[in-house]
């Protein structure tokens, strides 16, 4: 099992993501610099980490989503490579078109950092199967632009197809239909604003994030 974390200029949760992957797989994750043009073919799972890639200038995730490595990522996603984006990584995934919708400025306009209760809407995805019927988890959130937006037709489709994976219990940012995390049609690409990688160790105050990493690793 080989995993990788992509690092953009001013990614800042790349180390956190790598620690989580190492904890679950027992092997260090490979760090891939944004200027690389290809994800090595032996990589089984890729994480787009949180942070402020390119200073969040223009739009959050916009410039990163046009980097050389993301081009290859899009091609590999279509072939089924599992890819998860957390926080800024989720923004990169929507900007690159791998996931529908967009992340707008939080409704209350302020940055918000708090432990956030989430409901697991679909426990049968490749990212939630190991939660074994658990209905609620707590992941930290820390973002300024986490207000999920998509038009009604898209939202209806996401719901109908069971692609809303997590919802906020107590909406912290104005996200449409309390959506916190979604998957693509193929079920291999997943994005969420909360930080499961910051809930993997008792010192974090909880280990609810481990289930997510175990689920996707198990599915490969």
């Amino acid at each position: 099992m080989k995993t990788a974390v992509i690092t953009f200029p001013a990614s800042n949760c790349n180390r956190d993501a790598a620690m989580a992957l190492e904890k679950v797989t027992g092997r260090p994750a490979q760090m891939i610099w944004h200027r690389e043009t290809e994800i090595p073919s032996d990589i089984d799972f890729v994480v787009l980490p949180g942070g402020f890639s390119y200073g969040d200038y223009l739009r959050c995730g916009a410039i990163a989503s046009r980097s050389p490595i993301v081009k290859d990522l899009v091609a590999k996603a279509e072939k089924g490579l599992p890819i998860a984006g957390f926080c800024n990584g989720f923004q990169v995934l929507t900007e690159s078109g791998l996931l529908p919708g967009a992340l707008l400025r939080n409704k209350q306009l302020n940055f918000v950092c708090r432990p956030q209760k989430l409901t697991i809407e679909n426990g049968n995805t490749r990212y939630t199967s190991q939660y074994a019927g658990l209905k609620e988890v707590i992941f930290p959130i820390a973002h300024h632009d986490g207000n999920y937006y998509a038009d009604d037709a898209t939202l209806n489709q996401l719901e109908k197809e069971g692609r809303v994976v997590f919802r906020y219990a107590g909406n912290p940012n104005g996200s449409a239909r309390d959506i916190a995390g979604i998957v693509n049609e193929g079920g291999n690409v997943f994005g969420m604003m909360p930080h499961p990688e910051r809930a993997i160790d008792p010192v974090h105050g909880g280990t609810d994030g481990l289930g997510l990493f175990k689920s996707i690793i198990e599915s490969i």
Partner: peptide
């Protein structure tokens, strides 16, 4: 279309 605007929003 390619960068300056996100035409989703």
């Amino acid at each position: 279309e390619k960068l300056l605007a996100n035409t989703v929003i």
